[in-house]
Simulated scan of single mutants.
Amino acid sequence: MTTQWVAPRPGGSEVLEAIDVEVPAPGPGEVTIEVRAAGMNPADTKHTRGGEPSAYPMPIGYEVAGVVSAVGPDVSFVVGDEVLAFRIAGGWTASLTVPAVDVFRKPASLGFPEAANLLLAGATAADVIRVTRASGNDTVLVHGASGAVGLSVLQLLRPLGARVLGTASERGAATVRRYGGEWVPYGDGLEDRVREAAPTGVDVAIDCVGTDEAVDVSLALVADRSRIVTIAAQARAAADGFPAVGGAQPESKAFRDSVRQRLVDLAGAGQLDVLVARTFPLASAREAAELLESGHPGGKLALVP
């Protein structure tokens, strides 16, 4: 038996409960992971707020890092391997059995909390770069550049040579600059500040926050709407005719799955950092989820069994 956090009914952090569950023995193509850290993402409690009644109790958590504790037939891992896993269900737990295809060897240079928070944000960042076709010839505006996805976007754009303007609060300015972006404070007058910073124009806009300000400024500055993308303002995207991406979309899902190993390799080479602000004991998952939902966690959060 192990402890797993679930949403027994639709809702956010307020409905979360810890329950005891059996951990099945791994079958063919599966491994069991002793979780050392569970990643936390806004999607974790966003997705518990709606769904078919049959989806509940809904296990929470899409990515973990830990140590292989058991293996089934036809896998390349062995007991004791340090790994991370993404595209799983029920990661807020102490132990779970998952398909080996979703498991990757953890670089020795990466801590467990960092590894547990690498792939959802990183794959999302790679996806928005793919959709906008951003290249080294572009000036790119990234809204929410100091957040988890925004920072991954900055780091993935850096080797391409693109010029990147990153919106953030003053608290995030140093972080944006550290990862190669030119900081632009958000708030009233944002469009004018971006125009002043980029008088020759903006080619691409990537919205990682979903605010009307981010969308309105993007529409005003980028002529080609196919080069604007959002991860959080789906209604505006549909109404205004620009792309919105999500991990459930078939094309995005296939791409995000395909890019996972490359992201792990980049992190192992020190070319993709994950900034973890705080860790919580697994028993404090509800408290951690409340901080996550506040929108101001100050960086990535992880649950440590």
Rank of each mutant, 00 (worst) to 15 (best):
V67E: 03
A238E: 14
Y56R: 08
E22P: 04
R171F: 09
A100Y: 11
V31Y: 04
I231L: 15
P57Y: 13
V140L: 01
G61R: 00
P42F: 07
V101P: 01
L266Q: 00
F86A: 06
W5C: 02
F104L: 14
D273V: 10
T211V: 15
D102E: 15
V64Q: 03
I231V: 15
L263T: 00
R225A: 07
G166Y: 00
E293Q: 11
A205R: 06
A214G: 15
G150L: 03
L141M: 03
E182C: 05
D81I: 06
T211G: 12
L110P: 01
L219D: 08
G210D: 14
D102L: 14
K106T: 03
A70T: 02
A121V: 15
V140D: 00
R227L: 10
A37N: 02
A288N: 05
G161T: 05
G51T: 11
A94S: 14
T279P: 06
S252T: 12
Y186K: 02
A239C: 11
D240N: 08
I60W: 15
V153L: 01
R87V: 10
G247I: 14
V131Q: 10
F280R: 08
V64R: 04
E191L: 09
T200F: 11
D138M: 07
F242D: 01
V245E: 11
Q261L: 13
G61K: 00
D188L: 10
L120P: 02
P59L: 02
F280L: 09
A65P: 01
R130G: 03
D20A: 09
L263H: 00
G122E: 01
R260C: 10
